[in-house]
Write a protein that binds this DNA or RNA. Sequence first.
DNA 1: CCATTTATGTCGTGATACGATATAAATGTG
DNA 2: CACATTTATATCGTATCACGACATAAATGG
Lengths: 143, 143
Amino acid sequence: MSDKNLTLDQYRDLAEFRRQIRRFLHFSESVAKEHDIEPQQHQLLLAVHGLPEGVKPTIREIASRLFIQHHSAVELVNRLESTGAIKRQHGADDKREVWIRLTPAGRTLLRKLALAHRNEMENSGPQLARALQLVVRQRRTAA
Amino acid sequence: MSDKNLTLDQYRDLAEFRRQIRRFLHFSESVAKEHDIEPQQHQLLLAVHGLPEGVKPTIREIASRLFIQHHSAVELVNRLESTGAIKRQHGADDKREVWIRLTPAGRTLLRKLALAHRNEMENSGPQLARALQLVVRQRRTAA
DNA sequence: CCATTTATGTCGTGATACGATATAAATGTG
DNA sequence: CACATTTATATCGTATCACGACATAAATGG
């Protein structure tokens, strides 16, 4: 099914794919810091605000969506709360839960960042798509 | 040219795109740690081995390709050298330069990781492509 | 009613990336 | 050819982040 070796071109395609991801992430980190927010905190804001319909914005849910442990999410929430971008709201139903709510300041901040990202996708989008295509294509035509 | 507002769906598409990137990176980090190497060190190995034809594997070149400062690359190289995955080779031409060379152990390690990534792309590839498409499409049909 | 599970929080640690700073080799300019 | 400048690498202290280990409180299930 899958060959046990890789050609040099396959390494290069993988490297180029990672490079494009890093290019995008580097842009994202720069924009975040220009707006005085740490990159990971920005991503938590986006994850909360971009939650699908009907999903509760709890610590655990967000941690799961960010692929981090719950206590890592707790720390991000602590920092975001201290800067005033979010506030904690204790669960009305289940009192163990903590619901994360963006403050007006948090929403304003996220909107600026999201607009910058939307614009950047005009550059990153095609480059990422191309690099991704090369990796996936090589995968299919291997063997 | 670009609207100053975003719909909730646009936030959700951006969030989903970031989620897919994080899913892939989380997989990548897991595989790296299973092979007893730190994620960033793995990426440096790949960047070196996947260098285009004729590009010198110097610290500065690699730092540029990873979008990090040169001294951050120095630290990664220090750790990789201490684990025996790479070795430093002083530039024959320009004695200031340090050329990074994978050791046989480093190449074996990278090959295992690259194979695992190539397989994973079968899952991540389509999911990433779909999420990316939604973000870029929304960008085009906005306004 | 109490053992267990679930949700969140605290603490200490290690990897990473950075700015500031340092050193050595190469280069340019008079 | 001296010497100021640039280039390539390295060191040091600091902050963010993610983790494992552990703790606490609320919900749940025999």
